[in-house]
Design a protein around this nucleic acid. Structure first.
Lengths: 216, 216
DNA sequence: GCCAGTTTTGAACGATTGGTCGAATTAGAG
DNA sequence: CTCTAATTCGACCAATCGTTCAAAACTGGC
């Protein structure tokens, strides 16, 4: 934690609770993978700027100096979080768009795909959309570009559906795409695993809503 | 700016450009209102944790010490940003829900209301949904509560529409409400004033999408 | 049980941060 | 102009930050 702004009455949360006799910490083997996963969690919960390398180290049961053996920078950790999201997102969606199925079916699968990621990889997804401000230089531009490309794939599905007259031609594909993406991305604000619905069920409801609307 | 993490090649953006001969700065009269507005802008662009009080001072043409005459804390600034959002959001939506109009019309107006805020107050809205992590104590809880209440109002509209058989009874109002809110809130990620559409047009497209769907 | 390579420590660094405060400045009323 | 209160300055503080690095600790193969 180590919040930047501390109030008068410092709400210090007790860290390092487990200090039993011999076995000190869980101490899963340190690796770049573990660092990124833990960091994603902390970044999502406390924000990138308010998460110190100390925090990440403590969460892993390790000194912050040790992190630098596996990772170049704090920013590199953030970059790796972004990369994991893109890695699991881009390819599958591309395959859906290129598949030989109806636009309706494409849209359905695309929504399921996106909802599933937003739900299952919730921390990384949250970071992906909240902390892009902290990326700098060429990488920031690359992320922005690939994000746009991803959104464009949704747009393509809409456009295709309009061309074969399955989707209303009056709607602007870009706006519709943004609407759908917003609907799905917002999951990371309210979805908690173990809730009433599983990601597939939510995806189905979203699909139904987008396809035929809410009116009876 | 003053990023916490600096890369090897520091991409320093030139601040303090305007340094003409006599008239030094725009120097609008300093006030709590001005501080909050400027801070909202900076928080939205660079994040709360990465925005220093120095940054806010510079943006206002003032030393950071001066800020403390109008404001107690850095966190109080953040609190005030949150309050401005709630101030313009809650009351109008409540009036819409309580109005004597059809649920369809309520939903239409609610979407317009929400889209307009997300578009017009973009920076504050961005902060509202990105930086809630940095709130602590009772205020954090209050914001969470009022946020939930706001969402619940959307839910109410859906439920009402289902009861008079205008909306499909099969849909879960909560999920639909979250979907609509996500669609609208996502505006702050892509909407830029002066773009192709005005907020009212976007709201209309969203309404049409939600009401009758995308299929022809 | 020794050795080389890998991994972690722990202390230190320079920079920046949010916050404080008395002195200096400004503004307005009389 | 004068006096007072409101406002701002500018220097300062303690804490925390990301980062570095030599030394220590651990590791597996021989």
């Amino acid at each position: 934690m180590s919040e930047k702004t501390r109030l008068d009455a410092p709400p210090r949360t007790n860290r390092k609770v487990e200090k039993s006799e011999s076995t000190e910490r869980p101490r899963l083997k340190l690796s770049q993978r573990a660092i990124v996963a833990t960091a994603a969690d902390l970044f999502a919960r406390n924000g990138f700027g308010a998460t110190s390398l100390d925090d990440i180290g403590v969460a892993l049961g390790v000194t912050k100096g040790a992190l630098y053996y596996h990772v170049k920078n704090k920013e590199e950790i953030l970059k790796l979080v972004f990369m994991t999201v893109l890695t699991v997102s881009e390819e599958p969606l591309r395959r859906i768009v290129e598949a030989e199925i109806t636009p309706v079916e494409k849209l359905r699968r695309a929504i399921l795909h996106h909802v599933a990621i937003a739900a299952d990889r919730s921390p990384a997804m949250t970071v992906f959309y909240r902390e892009d401000v902290h990326l700098t230089g060429p990488f920031a531009r690359e992320i922005a570009t690939r994000k746009k490309a991803y959104e464009h794939l949704f747009e393509l599905i809409i456009t295709e559906g309009q061309q074969i007259n399955t989707f209303k031609p009056s709607l602007d594909p870009k706006i519709v795409a943004f609407g759908i993406l917003g609907m799905c991305n917002w999951l990371s604000e309210w979805y908690r695993s173990g809730g009433t619905y599983k990601p597939e069920q939510i995806a189905e409801m979203f699909s139904g809503l987008v396809e035929s609307g809410i009116e009876v």
